[in-house]
């Protein structure tokens, strides 16, 4: 009984020491695993695309729209950026891309393409327009 208690105490003390020694290693590994080499997403949905890639996708839609002037088709293509099975707001996608392009030095031609698509969306369905805040 006494021997068992001593062994158990020794084990717990060893474990605590091991834990204290392991702390720097844990900190290093956490930094490495989260900051230096985090796991990257595979098979990601487009909702996770970085802002510049989202904006460029919208620009592709605007380029294609310039050729066929098919608004329904453009709205369908913009659905790519929405969450599957949920309602999406094509106006917001184009509006965000236009804001990104303006801030990040898109060419005038590209900005005009985005503006053209935005105007076409409003013409197609006025309810796409953002609700003014009081």
């Amino acid at each position: 009984m006494g021997r068992s208690l001593i062994l158990e105490t020794t084990f717990l003390v060893d474990l605590e020491r091991e834990h204290n020694r392991g702390t720097p290693g844990t900190v290093i590994a956490v930094y490495y695993g989260w900051a230096v080499r985090p796991i990257t997403a595979a098979n990601a949905p487009p909702t996770l695309l970085r802002e510049d890639y989202r904006a460029d996708y919208v620009l592709m839609v605007a380029e294609a729209f310039q050729a066929d002037h098919n608004t329904e088709r453009a709205i369908g293509a913009l659905g790519f950026l929405g969450t599957e099975g949920q309602k999406y707001d094509p106006y917001a996608f184009v509006s965000d891309a236009l804001a990104f392009g303006t801030q990040n030095g898109y060419s005038v031609v590209d900005l005009e393409l985005l503006q053209g698509l935005l105007a076409a969306l409003l013409e197609f369905d006025a309810s796409f327009a953002p609700t003014p805040t009081p």
Partner: peptide, 28 residues
């Protein structure tokens, strides 16, 4: 102790609480 800590840290960051990926490229 260091090795134990490193292993524990990597298990935590890569398996238990991986960082939430919010920005990926088209390749992903």
């Amino acid at each position: 102790g260091l090795v134990f800590g490193l292993l524990l840290g990597l298990v935590l960051t890569w398996l238990v609480w991986p960082p939430r990926v919010t920005e990926v490229g088209p390749a992903n």
